[in-house]
Nucleic acid binder design. Structure first.
Length: 263
DNA sequence: ATTGTGGCCTGCCCGC
DNA sequence: TGCGGGCAGGCCACAA
């Protein structure tokens, strides 16, 4: 599913859409419009502009424009099944939980450029969305560049489950369910640990593994390519010590973890 | 303010 | 072969 590594791949793909005047934008499904702007307003704001930068903040992809009225920013979210295509090329090949099929009705939002090319958000389940001028300040620091101090501030003074905090995009942006399980497993921390209970050593360990894991998954090419992923099922075993994994719901999400080495 | 819960959305897989 | 139910989780509205 699109977590930080996939959206980073989408961002790089979207760089191929920069500097190309937009002829028109089209909603394949009006429900894909998010935020306070109507689909009509969003489409009108994009006509004639060119994208000037493709930025990623957590799982949010932002395309800046050279538009006149304060240069509108286009926010793209991909939910768990959304893909980005530029001129027919996909940002990632395989997307777990989504479908490989090509259905015209899944093209929820399309930007047609004056050169004839196009950028498409394809999302079978409509869990993503397109928003004009998304409120980036509502997001926590990006997980890829988060400092140890920022991570500590995102987690301290809270009795909420550690994993729930890691998934809270307002505190830390970019970690989704699969990566949360992978990072906690690598850092030997139980998902239900109270967020504020981590010792300085555990915080350092978590910070180190967060960066190592994200770097590795970006290199491998997807959030579903972690070492824990193949065992995230009934009867699955810990790749480190062979213990049968436990499944529980933490922070409202299905969580798999090793009862022997994660504390 | 913080925190937890349910709903949205629909492809896919399973059992009957 | 079709059908119903359960499942997946990012995000948001809502309640306590």
């Amino acid at each position: 599913m699109p977590e930080l590594p996939e959206v980073e791949a989408y961002r790089q793909l979207a760089e191929g859409a920069l500097g190309r005047p937009v002829e028109r934008a089209v909603f394949g499904d009006r429900r894909f419009a998010r935020g306070s702007s109507s689909p009509r307003h969003l489409v009108a704001a994009l006509a004639g502009v060119s994208f000037t930068a493709a930025r990623r903040h957590g799982k949010l992809l932002v395309l800046d424009t050279d538009g006149p009225d304060g240069a509108p920013h286009l926010g793209l979210r991909f939910g768990m099944t959304g893909r980005l295509l530029v001129d027919g090329r996909a940002g990632v090949e395989r997307l777990i939980y989504s479908s490989e099929r090509e259905e015209a009705k899944w093209d929820r939002f399309t930007v047609v450029f004056k050169d004839g090319g196009r950028m498409v958000v394809r999302d079978p389940r409509l869990l993503g969305g397109v928003e004009l001028d998304p409120t980036e300040s509502a997001l926590g620091p990006d997980a890829l560049g988060v400092t140890a101090g920022e991570l500590r501030r995102a987690l301290e003074h809270s009795v909420v489950a550690l994993k729930a905090r890691l998934l809270d995009q307002h505190r830390l942006a970019g970690v989704g369910n699969l990566i949360a399980d992978e990072v906690l497993w690598r850092a030997s921390l139980a998902p239900h640990r109270r967020s504020g209970s981590l010792t300085p050593a555990e915080l350092r360990r978590l910070h180190r593994h967060l960066h190592l894991t994200l770097d590795e998954l970006i290199r491998r090419g997807g959030s579903h390519l972690g070492d824990l992923m193949p065992e995230r099922r009934f009867g699955g075993h810990c790749p480190r010590d062979g213990t049968e994994l436990v499944r529980s719901t933490v922070g409202g999400r299905t969580s798999w973890w090793c009862p022997r080495h994660q504390h």
